[in-house]
């Protein structure tokens, strides 16, 4: 546990020591606010649903940027060899990096609270739905982070890590979308619908925190973190 905290602290320090964190947070806030408020006054509804419908698309491109360097850089500079010969277990390093990136995204989401706060001054906002949606956004982000972190462990090239993570996250996100479902044979429809990241997010976005959705997200996170430990351990047997 102590190791995990130390790694979280170090990784967070890395984020905020580089311009990446500030660029990321600025882009995220500017783009999400702009896209949302562009149509907000036309719709004239005190609801954040359009905002949360935007989020997955932003996450899709921005989260791989947060995870791409986590392993790729360690592999490239060979610092992984130092890290894994210290007295730590592999999963501690993986969890440390995962939670560091999750805390970073949580901070970004906290900064985006300016949106619901300003809406609530204009009209009555249903905070229950907003909180559920934020929780859903965090789960979605965590799933994307786990995917990105795993991809980063496959390569020592950050650009490749970024592109592959976008591609894989996009694929998993789209599997459950309607236009994919139409193209699939009947017996696969249910499965694809269940596997799609997007469909689960849509139901949370309606304000329904269903345990099935939460379990789904937690399993995606678990699967990719597990794959990550396998990938990291495979160095020993290559």
């Amino acid at each position: 546990m102590k190791h995990i905290f130390a790694i979280i602290k170090k990784e967070l320090k890395d984020y905020f020591n580089s311009p990446l964190a500030y660029v990321f947070i600025s882009i995220f806030l500017v783009v999400s606010n702009w896209l949302f408020f562009r149509s907000f006054f036309i719709q004239a509804q005190a609801s954040m649903r359009p905002y949360f419908s935007l989020l997955p698309w932003l996450f899709l491109f921005l989260i791989p940027a947060v995870t791409m360097r986590l392993w790729a850089e360690e592999k490239k500079l060979n610092t992984a060899e130092v890290l894994f010969t210290w007295s730590i277990k592999d999963p501690e390093a993986i969890l440390g990096k995962f939670f560091a990136s999750l805390i970073f995204i949580a901070l970004t989401l906290i900064l985006s609270l300016s949106v619901p706060l300003s809406i609530s001054f204009i009209g009555g906002l249903d905070w229950g739905i907003v909180i559920a949606s934020y929780l859903g956004a965090l789960l979605l982000a965590a799933a994307f982070l786990a995917i990105g972190l795993f991809i980063s462990s496959l390569t020592d090239n950050q650009i490749i890590a970024f592109i592959l993570a976008v591609a894989l996250a996009f694929a998993i996100f789209m599997v459950g979308e309607d236009f994919v479902l139409y193209a699939l044979p009947n017996y696969l429809v249910n499965l694809a619908q269940y596997l799609g990241l997007g469909a689960h997010f849509a139901s949370i976005n309606r304000g329904v925190l269903d345990s099935r959705d939460i379990i789904y997200y937690l399993s995606i996170i678990f699967i990719f973190l597990y794959l990550n430990t396998r990938q990291i351990a495979s160095r020993k047997w290559k």
Partner: peptide, 16 residues
Amino acid sequence: KQKIGYLPENNPLYDE
């Protein structure tokens, strides 16, 4: 690992 101190080849360090 607790008994070993290791300096890998090319001395990789967390530069930042």
